[in-house]
Design a protein around this nucleic acid. Structure first.
Length: 212
DNA sequence: ATGTCGATTTAC
DNA sequence: TAAATCGACATC
């Protein structure tokens, strides 16, 4: 692992080549990586967020009945058919924006939904859910099509050890026939907890105690 | 032109 | 358990 003179591990921005793998693989690989978001506030100041990804889901193509691309190539899904390493951000439930990373080969409509993260920038943002994550990090439909090799929205590998990963079926896709049970959701085991049927995050591994 | 429904979150 | 809230998509 390359290191800076400071002794800190090098921060490597993920490349288009990195994203150009099957969504199922990318979803697992993105657990533990650092999502970086920079945006310009009204007063002109640049705000930066950094958060470790702890939950993802893979949407694996047109044959995946839970994938938006199962409805074919439309204005909305077009981005997923293109090259990997671009953001697919869509609006849902009249309220929330969902962040996905396009993956796989051109022509294969695959993407990875970013469902949860924990701040590593000293903030106390609640990023425990795909809608809450985008709202907190100011990611919206305006970011649809954003190039993840750019400077406003990208992911870095901080060289941390690969986390232990838990796989489960995806959330909220009960309509997807046989695809609803496919284990395409990936969670950092240190943050996995089930309270009833609602996914929650256990931060005890990081802070030494269970939240209320 | 109109109706259905959702890759969620929050409140009751 | 249900409301909020609106764009995408299917259908007429």
């Amino acid at each position: 692992m390359a290191r800076h003179k400071s002794g800190h591990p090098a921060l490597r921005k993920l490349t288009a080549e990195f994203y150009a793998r099957p969504a199922e693989k990318l979803a697992e690989e993105l657990i533990g990586k650092i999502l970086v978001r920079k945006w310009r506030a009204d007063d002109g100041k640049t705000v930066e967020h950094r958060a470790r990804i702890i939950e993802t889901e893979a949407y694996v193509g047109e044959h995946d009945l839970a994938c938006h691309a199962a409805k074919g190539r439309t204005a909305r899904t077009e981005i997923m058919f293109g090259p990997a390493g671009f953001a697919y951000v869509y609006f849902i439930y009249g309220m929330y924006d969902m962040l996905n990373i396009v993956s796989g080969k051109v022509g294969d409509a695959e993407a990875v939904l970013i469902r949860g993260a924990v701040p590593v920038d000293g903030s106390t943002l609640d990023l425990s859910g795909p809608g809450k994550l985008t709202r907190a990090m100011h990611i919206t439909r305006r970011d649809n099509g954003a190039d993840l090799t750019g400077d406003d929205l990208f992911i870095v590998d901080d060289g941390a050890a690969k986390p232990v990963i838990v796989r489960t079926p995806r959330i909220g896709v009960d309509y997807a026939k046989q695809w609803k049970d496919e284990p395409l959701r990936f969670i950092d085991a240190d943050f996995h907890r089930v309270r009833g049927s609602v996914p929650r995050f256990d931060i005890s591994a990081q802070f030494g105690k269970v939240p209320p």
